[in-house]
Design a protein around this nucleic acid. Structure first.
Lengths: 115, 115
DNA sequence: CCAGATGTTCGTGAACTATCGAACATCAAC
DNA sequence: GTTGATGTTCGATAGTTCACGAACATCTGG
């Protein structure tokens, strides 16, 4: 379960890469679910796509520096790099989250129904 | 010189389309040059791409609702839909412009050297 | 060891994007 | 009308992205 693409360091976050990463409804949906700063495992996401497709999107977010991934046992925990994004692109993430919230962008991605 | 894709009305601007339109350095460069609210003709942009490529990028911006195009004679005037973008996605454009400015994104696109 | 859970990677096909040059359309000016 | 300026559109190519299932790797637990 080794990850290939490393996390880009804060100072090397690229605006166009972040914009591209956030130009997909599924990925926006994931980011919205991560907006509460809590860590989630990949499996917690209930998305209408194949497992491998979700993995691909999470890799895209990671490669762009939007999220940070941590492996623990056989699980992958992912969280939003909110502070890093804010440091490099002030206001950007908040604007996207607010707009996405109002427009219900990525609403098809939810958290697994938990007991 | 008739344009094909119409301008989307304000209320139908799509976040992911705007994000995608702004995920390209050349298009960000154009948007930065338009940030002063002045109208420009296509020919005023000095970009290191073919005429048809620039036309394509300007069409992308227009289709996403980032810019508005007006034809006058044989010229095309383009300007930023700043107010519309602000109304639908508050803070987004400003955040992008600020970040792009600091990182010099799209600096290869300039205005023609004028006499 | 074997089975199950969790993700990754690979191979594939479909769809989209960027780029160019060439051809075209439109208008202005002579 | 002819010519030149300004953009658009077309066709081709190359590269990228998205999606899937299948196969694989890793860890956990019997």
């Amino acid at each position: 379960m080794r990850h290939k693409d490393p996390h880009p360091p804060v100072e090397r976050l690229v605006l166009t890469d972040v914009m591209a990463a956030l130009s997909d409804p599924l990925r926006i949906g994931v980011v919205r679910l991560l907006a509460d700063e809590r860590e989630r495992t990949f499996g917690e996401f209930d998305a209408p796509v194949a497992k491998s497709t979700l993995s691909h999107h999470l890799r895209t977010l990671r490669a762009a520096g939007v999220t940070r991934t941590r492996e623990e046992g056989t699980r992958c925990y992912v969280r939003l790099r909110r502070a890093d994004l804010e440091a490099r692109f002030p206001g950007l993430l908040d604007a996207v989250l607010a707009a996405a919230g109002r427009d219900a962008v990525g609403d098809r991605i939810r958290l697994q129904a938990e007991g």
